[in-house]
Design a protein around this nucleic acid. Sequence first.
DNA 1: TGCATACAAAAGATTACCTCA
DNA 2: ATTGAGGTAATCTTTTGTATG
Length: 228
Amino acid sequence: MMERGEDLGLSLSLSSSLAPRRTHHVAMLLHAPERRFLEMPLLPAKQSEAPGADDSSLRGGSDDEDGGCGVDGSRKKLRLSKDQSAVLEDSFREHPTLNPRQKAALAQQLGLRSRQVEVWFQNRRARTKLKQTEVDCEFLKRCCETLTEENRRLQKEVQELRALKLVSPHRYMHMSPPTTLTMCPSCERVSNSNNNNSSSSTAAARNAVDGGGAMICHRPIAVRPQQS
DNA sequence: TGCATACAAAAGATTACCTCA
DNA sequence: ATTGAGGTAATCTTTTGTATG
């Protein structure tokens, strides 16, 4: 996780970035307004022009001094160029986290402060995770819909079998097993009742109709002895 | 060896700026 | 010209892992 060796190697160049963190620890003991005061740059950044009027304060810096705030404390927002974004994206694809050496090199290549590269990677990881969460959520939603539909179908099938059993028990006893998929709640595997397990699945389906509600389980321990 | 502490880095949450319809 | 939504850089807080005494 943390590369102390790398850190030590860069201790000189990063010394300015360590200072704010130390301040931060002290600041943790203070209330928010006091903290903000503590964290304000000692020398206000000179630029207070319109956004984008002079990006040099945001792009040119080679150290991690805070140069992103105007005199009034308002944030200046950097807009990465397409080229910068592309390089960052490529780098992210290669390794989603950077060691200090890579970070510094990337920052130098792009003319950004290493803190900005670091922030970009943090946000990028967050976006990736959010996207993945959305994908997972969508997948689970589909699963839920499928299972709900399957459950509805099975309920209907059981109902029909019960009706058939009442109307013509003889035909019910000799009918082929229902064409259902059955999921074992224990091992969570699905099997087709018409396939290899036909004898036990027939029993299971019939058991459900007969009130037993048995399922087919792939685990030997869960297999019920068939009643004839 | 186990524990407390400090530190660094990353994740998570939030804010604020900017663009665009 | 105004406004609301969405994207995202920046900031703040919490969590986690490691080193050290």
